[in-house]
Write a protein that binds this DNA or RNA. Structure first.
Lengths: 220, 220
DNA sequence: ACAACAGTCTAACGACTATTAGAATGTTGT
DNA sequence: ACAACATTCTAATAGTCGTTAGACTGTTGT
């Protein structure tokens, strides 16, 4: 009797799990966690063609993790809620915690562990507030506008080289981007260090930051 | 250059997602969140034969979400960490939040929303501490011993009928079991109400409770 | 109205996954 | 050593999923 019903319940949750079982879809989710994006942007950013991206988006939409909105000729997708970004953060956190293969791969990209704890996040927040460090958002500006870490400044990676003068040489610069799998902040730090700045990166993006229960800001 | 690397990273996370994409595996995970269990227990509880359960467990083990340990003739599985239980809680929370189909199915099982919020959890904890409510764990006793809500008392559903005398009639009884998909607490409440007790159920199990950042207890 | 464009829908292929049955492994008790 | 037992490993089949290509839909600008 209750067996059929139980199967039904778990089946429903498994639909969400299925949506999370494809690398491309996860990449799309991470991008959407930075803010609303059109299909072609998602396709070019994930290096797939539009048809495939559209197919993946359909799966995500059917699993109710994302929602679509028509904007003129374009169709813009966004996450169905903040909890979806939290789920993504939770998923990759568990994966990095338990899958050695992932740890190895990550270490090849970014040397050293930049995973944050409750305390390091709070101390960063305090230092950012009083201005003793510069929190630097190197993502494209629209993503910064959608949501960013408290007291963060936006200098997109593409503009960093010619806007270096805006940054102080005496303060520590803490760069972040889309999350632990995003390489933009690592590139930014490499450039900054070469020019004599005190810089480091953190693995958090807005999704990880707010999944940790901390507030984010956005341009109204 | 970085595309191949990115694919590798997301691929690793997707492995975990894949493990979460099958109803049976989710059911197994929920059971393991109650404590270590042998293959045959998992098989009978999920109504599958041992071979299939073993196959699913292998997938879970390969995704590093569970670990196995030989205990005599039996092989016992357990979650690879508390964060795995948290991920399961997060997953079904997002599913119940966004999938209407799941909400409908759940309402057919248990009338009324018994999802807890930060405040209701804290107030329950306070009332349990000062003894103004009885928190009742109706799961099998080994699961209670592995971990249970603070100040909870254990009366397994199977023994409830003949141990009714242990419960007070003047205090509210709050029953819980394995989580929002578990029907044991609903059955318990039905029985208690019929006998004139003031009883209600909550959707939380130990996984949901501790995912909310609250402490659990266990018999040492 | 028509062309250009962004994206979806449909169909089809190969690759992967769930499930089942049968043989094999490791452990316990005699 | 041997039988009983719990579980895994291997092989096979049916069904599902990712990916691709071609036809189709809705919107904009002329």
């Amino acid at each position: 009797m209750s067996r059929a019903l139980k199967d039904l319940l778990y089946e429903q949750v498994a639909r969400v799990g299925k949506a999370l079982s494809s690398p491309k879809r996860l990449e799309i989710l991470e991008l959407l966690a930075q803010g609303e994006k059109t299909v072609d942007v998602l396709a070019t950013e994930t290096a797939t063609d539009i048809k495939l991206a559209s197919a993946h988006l359909r799966v995500l939409k059917e699993s109710r993790l994302v929602e679509a909105r028509r904007d003129g000729r374009f169709i813009a997708y966004r996450l169905a809620g903040d909890d979806v970004a939290g789920l993504w953060a939770n998923l990759h956190s568990v994966a990095t915690e338990h899958r050695v293969e992932l740890q190895v791969a990550l270490n090849r990209v970014v040397a050293g562990p930049e995973r944050l704890t409750e305390e390091t996040r709070l101390s960063l927040l305090a230092k950012a507030k009083k201005g003793s460090v510069v929190v630097l958002d190197v993502r494209p500006e629209p993503e910064y506008q959608a949501a960013h870490l408290p007291h963060a400044r936006s200098i997109p990676l593409a503009e960093l080289k010619r806007r270096l003068a805006e940054l102080p040489k005496d303060k520590e610069i803490v760069a972040y981007c889309r999350g632990p799998f995003c390489l933009m902040s690592a590139e930014a730090v490499a450039l900054l260090k070469k020019r004599g700045y005190k810089a480091r990166k953190i693995g958090d993006g807005v999704a990880e930051w707010s999944a940790a229960g901390l507030p984010t800001e956005s341009e109204t």
